[in-house]
Simulated scan of single mutants.
Amino acid sequence: MTEGSPARERLALAVDLPLDQGLALYAQVAPFMGYAKVGLSLFVEHGPAAVTAFQKLGGRVFLDLKLHDIPNTVELAATRAGALGVALLTVHAAGGEAMLKAAVRGAREGARSQGHPPPRVLAVTVLTSLSAEDVTAVGLTGAPEAAAQRLAQLAVRAGVDGLVCSPREAEGLRRLLGPSPLLCTPGIRPAGAELGDQARAETPAFAVRAGADVLVVGRPVHAAADPVAAARAIATEVSFG
Rank of each mutant, 00 (worst) to 15 (best):
A224D: 07
H116K: 09
A49I: 02
T73V: 09
R219C: 01
V216I: 15
A24L: 13
G47R: 10
P167W: 05
R10E: 09
S180A: 11
A155S: 12
A152Y: 09
E97C: 00
L100W: 01
Q114A: 15
P71G: 07
E169V: 10
R209E: 01
V126F: 08
Y35W: 11
P179Y: 01
P18I: 05
Y26I: 01
A205R: 02
S131W: 04
L182V: 15
S129W: 11
E45G: 11
V61G: 05
V61M: 12
A152I: 05
P71S: 10
R200A: 00
A27Y: 08
T136G: 08
H46F: 07
G187H: 13
L154S: 08
A50F: 07
D20I: 06
D197P: 08
L183W: 00
R8G: 03
E169A: 08
K101W: 05
D20F: 00
Q149C: 08
Q114R: 15
T185A: 08
A77Y: 06
V208T: 02
V124G: 01
G110F: 15
G85W: 03
L11H: 11
G115C: 13
A147T: 09
G95W: 01
R157H: 13
G95M: 06
L183F: 00
A137D: 15
A191E: 15
M99K: 06
L19E: 14
D213P: 14
V221Q: 05
D197G: 01
P181K: 01
L177T: 09
G192I: 00
F43L: 02
T52I: 00
F43D: 03
G142D: 14
A12I: 14
G241L: 11
L127E: 11
A94Q: 02
D134M: 02
V121Y: 12
T136M: 03
A191I: 00
E169T: 12
A223D: 14
R112F: 05
V238Q: 13
A158F: 12
R8N: 03
V216W: 12
A14R: 14
C184T: 14
P190C: 02
V164S: 01
R189K: 07
P117Q: 09
A147Q: 12
V86E: 07
A107M: 15
P117K: 04
A107Y: 15
A49L: 05
H92A: 00
V126D: 10
G142A: 11
